[in-house]
């Protein structure tokens, strides 16, 4: 059996009296699309924030390629090739699309203008951003220098997904990437997810949309009450089974947790 690329063991996280994660385990296999499903408030976002460095778990361990990691900020996770689209998107509305895509990893001009005067290579960043967006077929942006606040909700989501897909080298995490999208745009994001997978990069996909989950997922991690309830193969279960599991209407299968 292949060894997982990203694992978590016994993660705990409390917010005051609210237990957001309780002895939560997690495994992501190389090259797979792992869907994470669960009720509102089950703790899905909390889990992936721990994996992406956005929050520190109170206890527990996370391993990347078998090596213990302690991310104290999203920058550190990014340096390890883990890119995340957060549920809130984490975009700066008053800045441009290119500014947002390169936030925290700006490209400077070559030569003295870049090294001494720290000038950004806006053209290079805009070209890159434009290429990525059109390559992903995500949208028809008239002007890459327009601010994010002038975009529709779906377009914003497209920008956030494009940013993660463009830079993710190890793991791409998507927290409800199709939540605000219409049919066409959801389709594009799903195709994009498959494209990223075809490059051999594993993906964690959080979604409430069962058709989407069952279309793309190799395995489904069912999250309930702050921990992993079970991992199921979408070929062996129906959508209603999955919903029954996550709401507690069905008991989890007897299993020695997959992977």
């Amino acid at each position: 059996m292949t060894s997982p690329i990203l694992t978590a063991r016994k993660l705990n996280k409390r917010y005051g009296r609210v237990v957001a994660m309780e002895d939560c385990d997690f495994d992501l296999l190389p090259g797979e699309i792992l869907a994470v499903i669960g009720d509102n408030g089950a703790g899905k976002s909390t889990l992936i924030k721990a994996l992406s460095g956005a929050l520190r778990p109170d206890s527990g361990e996370i391993r990347l390629d078998g090596k213990l990691v302690h991310f104290s900020s999203p920058i550190q996770a990014r340096e390890h090739g883990i890119e995340t689209v957060y549920q809130t998107l984490a975009l700066s509305p008053a800045l441009t699309i290119a500014d947002n895509i390169f936030m925290g990893r700006e490209i400077r001009k070559p030569g003295i203008m870049g090294s001494l005067f720290r000038q950004l290579d806006k053209k290079k960043m805009q070209d890159f951003a434009r290429n990525k967006l059109s390559e992903l077929g995500l949208m028809t942006i008239q002007n890459i220098a327009q601010t994010v606040e002038t975009l529709s909700g779906g377009q914003r989501q497209g920008v956030a997904v494009a940013r993660a897909a463009a830079f993710g080298t190890n793991v791409v995490i998507l927290d409800e990437p199709t939540a605000a999208l219409g049919v066409k745009e959801s389709r594009k994001v799903l195709d994009l997810i498959k494209t990223v997978k075809s490059k051999g990069i594993p993906i964690i996909l959080i979604s409430h949309n069962m058709p989407h989950v069952f279309e793309v997922a190799d395995r489904i991690h069912v999250h309930r009450l702050g921990k992993r309830l079970c991992v199921i193969d979408p070929k062996d279960y129906t959508m209603s089974d999955a919903v029954a599991l996550m709401t507690g209407a069905m008991a989890p299968p007897d299993q020695e947790v997959a992977a």
């Binding site: 549920q87 529709s152 914003r156 939540a179 996550m246």
Partner: peptide, 24 residues
């Protein structure tokens, strides 16, 4: 687009409305 964008959605995607991208 903050938290809790809705509960479980088992509808087919075709039933969703198409987002407007036109801003002309």
């Amino acid at each position: 687009m903050t938290d809790a964008p809705g509960s479980v959605d088992t509808r087919l995607p075709e039933q969703e409305t198409v987002a407007e991208f036109d801003s002309s």
